[in-house]
Design a protein around this nucleic acid. Structure first.
Lengths: 219, 219
DNA sequence: ACAAGTATGTTGTTTTTACAACGCAAAGGA
DNA sequence: TCCTTTGCGTTGTAAAAACAACATACTTGT
């Protein structure tokens, strides 16, 4: 677990906490590490899970398949991202989505009760972590609203523009990689893959952007 | 402001706090009350606002109009609901949406710094309120994911079924009122009003449900 | 190197949605 | 009461998306 201290110190959960203090807190928070192979499920829709989780390594998708096999991707999780915070409350009910490893991954689990309960003097940074947690949930909240903004666009083209503009802004660059292949991007934006593919090529031919695999450049 | 203490004691923010203690906290949290006429804007997209707000009376919509006048409704706010919590952090940036009164309303503003900072002994329930706040943001988070679920449905009919089923479950009844008229529901689900209207009538004719104005009964 | 599987683009057809226009009924104000 | 506004349903047409099917290039494992 110690090898991930540098990653942890860059996470939003431990913002402002020094590496050595993080190491001390891992015990206090009963941190547990688990590894997953590409394609493995980390969590399944319908389960109860009240831990707070950090992705130490790899990449995950938070998604859901309906009865007919239509997949809907809610978000992607990258190394250093937190997930599951919204289910920390004991009465938060069953998970609405699956969490799947799209690369070989390592996840650290924290007991949410331990995180939320103000503990003894040992962890002096504890209250900072609680506030970090609140800010992180707030930020995810804003991200979800932003995604609602993409999904509320009328046409496939508008959805693409809305999403790609956002990614460009997020990376502070007109050139960036997205965490999806075509099918996944279609599942993320809730559109048909082939229609989206055509639309992307049309936009490229009109000179709005260029791309190769999952690398995009906006013009 | 005191007349709203009964409403406040039923809010998620003050869950577990007695009415008299709430009264004491109002000063500590620098609570301010403002009234809005139907149609007035409470907040505008692009503004900075880091207060936490509670709707004491009336009804609001959180929505956004794009350049071409297409409206998208993110959520409705009912009496006793909190809003703006996602922007409590000082670095949370500008608001993404407008907040509009759809009825004459009364809003209570709390200084978020005061809420988050653990204050002097005076407010012994303060830490409970902070935890309530975290749980409330978490719950909104789950609600937003649920809304993403509605929006990701392929057809207007599926969106309606997804949304109405949810409302039915939320009210624990197959008979319930929704906080939208037809145009607003269409803006909420991001579909065309007239197409949605036809679809609703078709579903009624097939015996799936019945409705009158904003009252629905699922069969 | 080869075979099998995966990812992407392309095309044509069918289905669905968006849009525009209108009629009617109910609500609200003068 | 009358007039205006608003909300809802309906219809026909145009536009867009979904769907299915296939060609090609690229990966991966043996």
């Amino acid at each position: 677990m110690e090898k991930y201290i540098p990653v942890l110190s860059r996470t939003k959960l431990f913002a402002g906490v020094a590496g050595k203090d993080i190491a001390a807190m891992l015990g206090c928070l009963q941190a547990k590490l688990r590894r997953y192979k590409k394609g493995e499920y980390v969590l399944r829709q319908g389960e109860q899970m009240h831990d707070i989780m950090l992705l130490a390594e790899g990449a995950l998708h938070i998604q859901r398949d309906d009865y007919w096999g239509n997949r809907s991707i809610v978000s992607s999780v990258e190394a250093g991202d937190m997930f599951g915070e919204a289910y920390a409350a004991p009465d938060s009910g069953a998970l609405l989505n699956d969490v799947v490893a799209v690369e070989d991954s390592a996840v650290i689990f924290f007991d949410s009760g331990r995180v939320l309960r103000v503990c003894s003097s040992a962890c002096r940074f504890h209250s900072a972590v609680v506030q970090n947690l609140f800010f992180a949930v707030s930020e995810r909240n804003r991200t979800l609203v932003q995604k609602l903004g993409h999904m509320s666009r009328r046409s496939t083209r508008e959805k693409l523009i809305s999403y790609l503009s956002d990614e460009s802004k997020r990376h502070n660059s007109s050139s960036f990689f997205i965490p999806f292949n075509r099918q996944q991007l279609a599942d993320f934006l809730s559109v048909d893959r082939s229609a989206m593919s055509s639309e992307l090529c049309r936009m490229r031919d009109e000179g709005m952007l260029s791309f190769e695999k999952n690398h995009f450049v906006l013009k």
